[in-house]
Design a protein around this nucleic acid. Structure first.
Lengths: 206, 206
DNA sequence: CAATGAATTCAACAACCGTTGACTTAACCC
DNA sequence: GGGTTAAGTCAACGGTTGTTGAATTCATTG
């Protein structure tokens, strides 16, 4: 419960000046921004809407973060430790695929992470900055580490295939909402997609 | 070469009134709109930019299509015949996965189709209309027909899994541009992803 | 060749957006 | 407790956007 203010619309009564009490309205702005960016994407989210959701004046957003792009970037300090993500693979030799999928689903279950990830995914579709950011994130953080673990000649292609299946899972399950993918249990997803990842990692691609 | 005008910026010299010659500037607007929607998505594409690319006044766009949403919808008369898409599966019994992937790649090779598809995908990320449109397109046109062909009890989940891998392929290869996925040849993609689709269709999901 | 209608442009409106600068109030430090 | 600094608001500017209505020119038909 780090949320300050009741997140209503105007300010606390319309008064001016500094707020009394433990005013962490900076994090309130960040939370509202994360939520709105995640829900509507970058372009359809206005600074005024963020400010209103945080119960704050629009000018305060600029006071804290400067520009809208900067606010978006501040939203994206990702709490996903790649080593934690891939470390689980070491614990299940021969069954890395299922382990990785289960891990990914567990990570997406964290609301904060889910919001950041969907916001990045949504924005990356039409905003060049986010597109580059997502590509770099996938390439350097994900693909590179995966390729290192695989070690074979076609490691990069294998890592790309893994990314493609996981990206498609995110798209159909989190963003677009294809019914059977949304309603399927985590266990069903792991059972269905795990072997695919396993084959992309270590199987034959011929 | 159905394109009219040289697609410059203003009009033909700045004159008023009706243009002489075979005025197919309506389709010029449609082409420009398709191209820009595909490149930048719905929100970041302005009617003024579309008009400029078509060498036409912004007001003409409204004269033809009314609202911006209507123009977008007019852009989306999809030339993908689902039966043509899935018909290829009948010709390769037991190898439907590879056949379907190859077919999908061939369809994406058509510039017109590629533009419409990427525009829809980009816009579906943040625009509710397009999101519903894409979901319905996938669900009724794609999943339903796929499910009919599969016929088993878990047909819907299987169709959803197919959609997830194909959507991820589109995302990484067409939109975000993950290097190994872009540079891979069609044959490599078919060889790698075809068996995945095959397993989702007819294999064991346990 | 006059008349009708459609194609096309011009100019502008109203709304909204991101951003800025001046101002006010509270918290904090010596 | 006075002074400094940061939090917070207000009002407004300049730009862009979707959209509209009137005016103008061409194609077409009788």
């Amino acid at each position: 419960m780090t949320r300050a203010t009741t997140a209503g619309r105007p300010a606390s009564g319309g008064r001016r000046g500094r707020r009394p009490g433990p005013d962490s309205s900076r994090t309130a702005v960040l939370d509202s921004a994360r939520s709105l960016f995640s829900e509507k994407g970058f372009d359809r989210t206005t600074i005024r809407a963020i400010a209103a959701a945080a119960g704050v004046d629009p000018a305060l957003v600029h006071h804290f973060f400067g520009t809208k792009d900067a606010l978006f970037r501040a939203t994206l300090v990702l709490p996903i430790d790649p080593d934690t993500l891939f470390g689980v693979m070491d614990d299940h030799p021969g069954d890395e695929g299922r382990a990785l999928v289960a891990r990914v689903l567990a990570v997406w279950a964290q609301p904060r992470v889910l919001e950041q990830f969907t916001a990045l995914l949504r924005t990356a579709m039409s905003h060049e900055h986010a597109q580059v950011a997502l590509r770099d994130l996938l390439t350097t953080e994900l693909l590179r580490r995966l390729a290192e673990r695989v070690g074979t000649v076609d490691a990069e292609l294998r890592a790309g295939l893994v990314a493609s299946q996981l990206a498609g899972l995110a798209l159909t399950r989190l963003i677009i909402g294809i019914d059977p993918m949304v309603e399927a249990s985590d266990e069903q997803i792991v059972a269905a997609i795990g072997p695919t990842i396993q084959r992309y990692l270590t199987g034959s691609l011929g």
